[in-house]
Simulated assay, not measured.
Amino acid sequence: MAIKAPMKGCVKMSDEEIVRRIQDGDSQAFHELYDNYFDFAYRAAKVVMNSQQSYAKDAVQETFIRVYQHIHLFDCNRTFKPWFYKILLNECNRILKKNSGVLSVGMDINHSVQQNEQTNDKLNHFVEYENLYKAIQHLDENNRIPIILKYLSGFKEQEIAEILGENINTIKSRLFYGRKKLKHFLHCNEEGS
C-alpha cells in the first residue's frame, strides 16, 4: 500500500505560523486566523456574557480589531490561543461593565426546546445541558471564568493562570470551589424536579 504525500496547500498551519505570516504583512493570513477563531470566540463570548448574542458579537468584533491592531506585539514563541482568549475576556468584561444595567441572565428556553424536541433523547440531552448552563451562570465570575476556560474551552490550569494573570494555585482553588458550587446547584436542582 502506497502512502500518498499530502497535497500542497492542504497542511494546516499552526496559529503561530499564521501569526508570523500576518506580522510579515500577509493580509490573507488574517482571514485564515479569523476563520479559525470566529466560532470558538463567539461560543466563548456567549457563555461568558450569559448568552447575550448581540453583546457577544460586539465582543468578538472588538476582539478581532484588538488582535489586528496588536498582532505585531505577539511573541510567536508563545501559544496564541491564551493570548487571544485574554483579549476576548477583556472585551467581554469591558462590554459587560459598559452595559451592566441592561444585561439579563439566561437564554430563550422555549426557542431552544422547540429546536430540540425531535426526539426524547435530544430533549433529555438539552435538559441536562440547560441545567449545567444555568448552574454555570449562577457562579460568581471568579469561579465561572476558570470553569469555562477549563471545561468548555479546554485550557490547562497554567494557561488559565496566564490568561487571568493569577497564580496557578489561585486558579486551582477557584476551579475546586467552582466544581463544588456546580455540584451543589445541580444536586439542589435535581431534588427540586
Rank of each mutant, 00 (worst) to 15 (best):
V113H: 00
E62P: 04
N36K: 15
F185Y: 15
L175C: 09
E117W: 00
E130H: 13
V47R: 12
L152Y: 15
K150G: 03
D24M: 13
L73T: 15
I87Q: 06
P146Y: 11
H31G: 11
F126M: 05
W83H: 02
C188G: 05
T79V: 15
A59W: 12
N142E: 15
K81I: 07
I171F: 09
D121E: 10
A135V: 10
L96M: 04
E128I: 02
K134F: 14
H70M: 05
G154Y: 11
L182M: 14
C10Q: 11
V105N: 00
A161F: 09
R21C: 07
K150C: 10
D39H: 11
A59F: 09
Y55I: 06
M49I: 09
K156Q: 12
G9N: 13
Q61F: 13
I148M: 12
M107G: 01
K97E: 05
S193P: 00
L152K: 12
L149A: 10
Q52I: 03
I148Y: 13
K98Q: 09
Y151W: 14
A29K: 07
S104F: 00
A161S: 13
V127N: 02
H31F: 02
M7A: 15
C76K: 06
K98P: 00
D121A: 05
Y85R: 06
S193G: 04
S153Y: 12
V11Q: 14
R144E: 10
T79E: 15
N110C: 00
D121T: 09
N99F: 04
L123A: 06
C10E: 13
D15C: 06
M1G: 15
E141V: 14
E162H: 12
Y177L: 07
A5N: 12
Q118Y: 02
F38G: 01
H72R: 14
N116T: 01
I22N: 01
N169I: 08
I163E: 06
P146S: 11
F30A: 01
M1N: 13
